Simulated assay, not measured.
Amino acid sequence: MLTKKQWEYCLEQFGEMFPDAHCELVHANPFELLIATLLSAQCTDVLVNRVTADLFKKYKTPEDYLAVEVAELENDIRSIGLYRNKAKNIRALSQLLIDEYGGIVPPNRDILMTFPGVGRKTANVVVSNAFGIPAMAVDTHVERVAKRLGMNRWKDSPLAVEEKIMRWTPREQWTDTHHRIIFFGRYHCKAQNPNCPECPLLPLCREGKKRMKERAD
């Protein structure tokens, strides 16, 4: 397993490789980020941005999403996976925002997790990017990188990954680290074809060393 000292080295390398890593979901306010992140489940940010480019021109407030029939909203997000369920959740959380929070997205992860369609990852993304609250959102990229490096065991849950990264990373770095690991996983340590030969972390990466050995054999 990775040591804390090795993890500190990983953080340095993530920062050097992707110093400008950021949230790639295009949004203008917390409500748009909440909708975009909900839509991004099991879907790429690129596709979500393509859809929200028009969606956010048409729907600007929670009331707007409730002013149309659900079939119309479904049609507007039809190219996104699970669009029927996501349309239902968007309308339900819009109603909840209006009824309980004056139409304003609350800057609180635990409250956001009570919203329809909003899990821990989505709530962490919103509070960290929209409100500047340090958080560590674990998506598929973060989980894959942590487990390949040996930071976590393969059987560990996303929550276990989140907790260990937070424990070993300074709090003020949580949000930047989240973005940098995502960029590292999305553009370098890819799911299907990781760039192990040119990776600065190869000497301490259990998965990378295994892959390189298999190539040599």
Rank of each mutant, 00 (worst) to 15 (best):
A53S: 11
I35D: 05
I111L: 08
R171A: 12
D110K: 12
R50Q: 15
R206E: 15
E32I: 02
A21F: 11
N193V: 12
C10A: 15
G132N: 01
A146W: 05
Q6H: 09
A28Q: 15
G102W: 00
T114G: 07
D156P: 07
W154L: 14
T169D: 00
H188T: 00
M212D: 14
Y83G: 01
N49I: 13
A123E: 00
P194C: 03
V68D: 14
C23Q: 14
V125W: 05
K57T: 07
G15W: 08
F31T: 02
L159K: 14
A36W: 07
E32P: 01
Y83F: 10
A135N: 04
N75A: 14
I104D: 00
R78D: 00
C199W: 09
E163D: 02
R215M: 12
D110G: 03
L55R: 13
K121M: 07
E63N: 08
D64S: 09
W154Y: 14
E16I: 05
K5N: 09
A191F: 02
L66T: 04
M212G: 14
P158N: 05
D217Q: 14
L11V: 08
L25E: 08
E74L: 04
N129P: 05
T44M: 12
E198W: 13
D139S: 04
L39A: 13
V70I: 11
K209L: 15
L25N: 11
L82Q: 08
V126S: 09
T140F: 01
N124M: 07
N152R: 14
I98F: 07
T37P: 05
L47R: 15
T61R: 14
D217A: 12
I77A: 05
N152V: 04
D110L: 09
A135T: 04
R120N: 10
V138H: 00
R91C: 04
Q192R: 14
L204R: 15
K5C: 01
P62K: 06
V126L: 07
K57L: 11
D20E: 13
D54M: 08
Q95H: 08
